[in-house]
Design a protein around this nucleic acid. Structure first.
Lengths: 339, 339
DNA sequence: ATTGGCGATGTAAAGGTTTACATTTGGGGA
DNA sequence: TCCCCAAATGTAAACCTTTACATCGCCAAT
């Protein structure tokens, strides 16, 4: 027993000279017990230092006051900011957060799902786009769940993410407004959905500005710093260079900027660069990166709220909630160098 | 019930035509049941998809399979890397991690301690140097606990941290080896213990190198970027400038570097600067910061291991474990400019 | 003076385990 | 053949709650 001398409801009942049922009622539905008894009970609680045993309570009630959060990498700063939003919302409702770190390992994912099958979690927040395969029975009777960032591939689970199209549109519109026309988009083949949507925002912006297809350049990397550098090399093998690079994410932008400095170019004097995500180091790059900020804490909050909606009534769940991210203007964008 | 159609031990027993006691034994002490029955039971488990209800089990056993982790800021990247270490170690032992985010609010801290009093956590990891005041009874019967980073002020609780003296010594020795003699130390008045220890490392290094007291400069900030800038201003009001600034942490170093660039100086050509912590952006500063890396994941791992030692046998707990951090050489240190 | 009804309280079952203790079974030694 | 013992299994209590149902007392209405 973690708390060997902790009082039980029976101790309280004895001290207050009532039955345990009355004590339970005095705590959870005080309107059902007479004022005088309520006082006696409260006094007894104060004296004994009683706290109700959540294990017993949850067992009896057939539920749990925990939400399981499964993420591939809990060390990722993106993750931790979202965690804050999740946590606040859960605590406000008396729930605790249980975290699982899958390291992209399906076996570990399964291991964590056991917390669910053992009735230790009432709901599930998934940061990973795929539910662990293999134990279909486990997956079959999942509690209310919501995905974060990406829709869950094989779950038919509602999710909360960011409006990539709108975000990308803000970036491309900024570049266009500075006078850029020849803008390259560097995507991420590994993060298909987000990359496709951001590219769509790019295309819509270019369409709206009437930039002909011939002036558009679209490349694909894999979302890493290195792939940004590689994409830049590809660009420099072309006849005509773009005047701005719109990157699918900040890491790619770091690679591009590094590559440009290595070639002796200056950002934004020679080329403008934008990112997406607003990673912690974005403001410390030289130049500080103009990017799209993920509304991380808001996403967490929204996801948890949605989960509790689901917990309350299974029906009527929205299936996709997209939050519009903000543009963060720093110093990596300027007007194109006059030809 | 989160999992409405989940099988109970009784279902398994019925199917295997044994008593529930036998099922329980087949699972948790298989050597006590005949091979043939064991097989029948396993088969029944496979068919029903039974998983033991952890709530009921823990209730009966009077313990929990959760560790509560309380931190002032779970969004802090420092925190999340430690979390990884904690998590790995806990999962390996079949424990889950419950996180609490106090936001430096004692009331919230107390709220989380309730998870303990309600028997939902078997152990406690504290990232905060102070236990919530007020409910002495709660604090009185705390489960096995360990602090991380700082000793817990009012708990007499063992802790795992970093050897600040040794770390600071590595930084000052690097500066000395480059030829610096006039080295300023900028401390943090708000983080007393760490600051004092790092300063001690500084002093020991200077002593060992035979640098007279007269050439040492010691200032105090409050650990923020802004305070680094302020400290720099103070330095520039002096008659003689140092050739290197050793900062109590990376944020202070950022302030110092920013201030130096603003004054038109170059790092490390004009002045060398070191930090401490190795925050995520340290490698992206210009110049990339030479600093001392906190062994975050190792700290988490060690803390959790220590906690399980405590859980196993209350006696013989080490009271302070300090891990020696590594020097990360980047580009903010060079030889002093010849006079 | 009865009776009906209602508010307050008590009794006991149920939730799913684990395990001390009791019982059964089977085999080996006499 | 009988008895004893050990191994295997079963029975039931306990862990701590919550809550349906039963009971009790009391007041108001008849």
């Amino acid at each position: 027993m973690s708390n060997p001398n902790s009082a039980t409801i029976e101790d309280v009942a004895r001290l207050a000279e009532v039955s345990i049922a009355t004590v339970s009622r005095a705590i959870h539905s005080p309107e059902k017990v007479a004022k005088s008894t309520r006082q006696k009970v409260n006094q007894a609680i104060a004296i004994t230092g009683y706290t109700t045993n959540a294990l017993a309570r949850n067992l009896r009630l057939g539920r749990s006051n925990m939400i399981l959060v499964i993420a591939p990498d809990i060390g990722d700063p993106n993750f931790s900011s979202i965690l804050v939003g999740l946590e606040n919302e859960a605590r406000a409702r008396g729930y605790g957060i249980l975290i699982g770190h899958t390291q992209n390992d399906a076996q570990l994912g399964l291991e964590y799902l056991k917390f669910i099958n053992s009735n230790q979690a009432a709901g599930l927040i998934l940061f990973t786009g795929v539910l662990p395969y293999g134990h279909q029975d486990m997956v079959a009777n999942l509690p209310p769940s919501v995905g974060v960032f990406e829709p869950v591939f094989n779950g038919g689970i509602p999710y909360v993410g960011v409006d990539d199209v709108a975000g990308a549109r803000k970036a491309v519109d900024l570049l266009l407004s500075q006078g850029h026309r020849r803008i390259a988009f560097i995507g991420d083949a590994r993060n298909r959905l987000a990359s496709r949507r951001r590219r769509q925002g790019y295309s819509e912006g270019m369409d709206a500005a009437g930039v002909p297809e011939s002036q558009r350049i679209i490349l694909d990397g894999d979302g890493t710093v290195e792939s940004g550098r590689l994409a830049l090399e590809q660009l420099f093998m072309r006849d005509t260079l773009p005047t701005a690079m719109m990157c699918v994410n900040d890491l790619t932008a770091v690679g591009v900027i590094t590559g440009l400095s290595a070639r002796g170019y200056s950002v934004p004097a020679d080329f403008s660069v934008t990112g997406f995500d607003d990673v912690p180091q974005a403001g410390f790059l030289s130049p500080p990166l103009t990017t799209i900020r993920q509304p991380r804490s808001a996403i967490g909050k929204k996801a948890m709220t949605l989960l509790f909606d689901l917990l309350a009534n299974t029906e009527g769940a929205e299936t996709e909630i997209l939050l519009v991210p903000d543009l963060v203007v720093r110093e990596s964008v300027g007007p194109p160098r006059p030809q």
